[in-house]
Design a protein around this nucleic acid. Structure first.
Lengths: 199, 199
DNA sequence: GTAATTTCTTTACAATTGTTAATGTTCTTT
DNA sequence: AAAGAACATTAACAATTGTAAAGAAATTAC
């Protein structure tokens, strides 16, 4: 894994936040103090099914995924890459037991904050409520787009859109994981890819 | 349509908000002034595809649905009933053209606020950011549950869960609309219902 | 660098769902 | 109350997708 200074990580993090709302240097002091940089190897489980999600993770480098387990089969719910806040959100927001697992698909560099620290930070930096609201709104909109694609589009269309939108994930994520994310079997995805390649 | 005093409507609205955060009488003055009570008949289109969603609607009485149009077929994205904030959210939040239509499935009593008034209100009553954040979080969690059901459950299971969770909607909403919400055809839903009734 | 594991593709077959069209039912409208 | 429209069910058939199993390819581990 390449090394990079913590300051640079924090800079890219601040940039992401300031796309939402400008942050004063004083507020930034408070915020950056509370986020802890960590590195985790591939296959690390950050939150496990049955546990309460203690933290959210801003992704500096790497890929995380959420998956559900149904009859010993892992079904991917979402794939997070650089610049996103990842978590088992429902568990984190409600502080209830998760029905999802959060897993590193690559070696990752993350900035993490736990639930109680975030609540404290909300009180110290009220502007963060706006960031929280906008992030929740963005995640809602994103989820709604995915859901509408399940209602409106064929499996093939959905795969094409995924490939168009996330060409890097297509390379970095195993296909059977993409398949379950699209709501189909690996066999079916393989057939779709063959069909497309013939055109 | 039964008549009820505007004061009572506002009371039930305040109650819903206070489940999220206590609101002072002063703040409540500001808030309640800005929401306008309206009544609309069945089949009213509150936002049309291609338009920008001007307002959000708190539902006092009645049912709204969001639908997409694909090759002249209407596909239901969500069904809102009493106590929820309904809108074509993506269009409303981003103030971009909607790819959804918001329709009244029954005669409705609503409290409405338009985008710019809400932005003003956010400035006057900062506590509303918390309400906005929590509502966005709730809608995100709800959307995520629906999406996971599409990934994890069979059509029959999804119908059973819908029937369990919303027995009233089962009565009040036409079945072909429920079918498209579940991501299946009316024919397929009819088969599922028959299969279940035999057990 | 080779063995072991994981991942991807292919095939044959089974199961589910969609499509079309006909029929019956219910709801609206006048 | 009758006519028309909208909705729900059923049947036959077509198309799609899932399942299971086997082999090929790629990746990982020692």
């Amino acid at each position: 894994m390449e090394k990079q200074g913590t300051e640079n990580h924090l800079q890219s993090f601040r940039k992401t936040m300031e796309r939402i709302i400008p942050i004063s240097d004083t507020d930034w002091q408070m915020i950056s103090q509370k986020f802890e940089p960590i590195e985790v190897p591939k296959r690390t489980l950050l939150t496990k099914e049955g546990q309460i999600a203690s933290s959210i993770y801003f992704i500096i480098k790497g890929i995380l995924r959420i998956f559900y387990t149904k009859e010993d089969v892992e079904i991917t719910g979402f794939i997070f890459s650089e610049g996103l806040f990842a978590s088992c959100y429902e568990s984190f927001l409600l502080q209830t037991k998760s029905n999802q697992t959060l897993e590193a698909l690559e070696d990752c560099v993350l900035l993490t904050i736990d639930y109680h620290t975030l609540q404290t930070l909300y009180k110290e930096v009220p502007a963060l409520h706006i960031v929280g609201r906008v992030v929740a709104e963005q995640r809602f909109i994103n989820g709604q787009r995915i859901l509408s694609s399940h209602l409106l589009d064929s499996h093939e269309e959905r795969y094409r859109q995924f490939a168009d939108q996330y060409p890097d994930l297509l390379q970095r994520v195993p296909q059977h994981i993409i398949a379950s994310y699209l709501g189909i079997t690996p066999v079916s995805l393989s057939r779709i890819r063959k069909r497309i390649s013939r055109k």
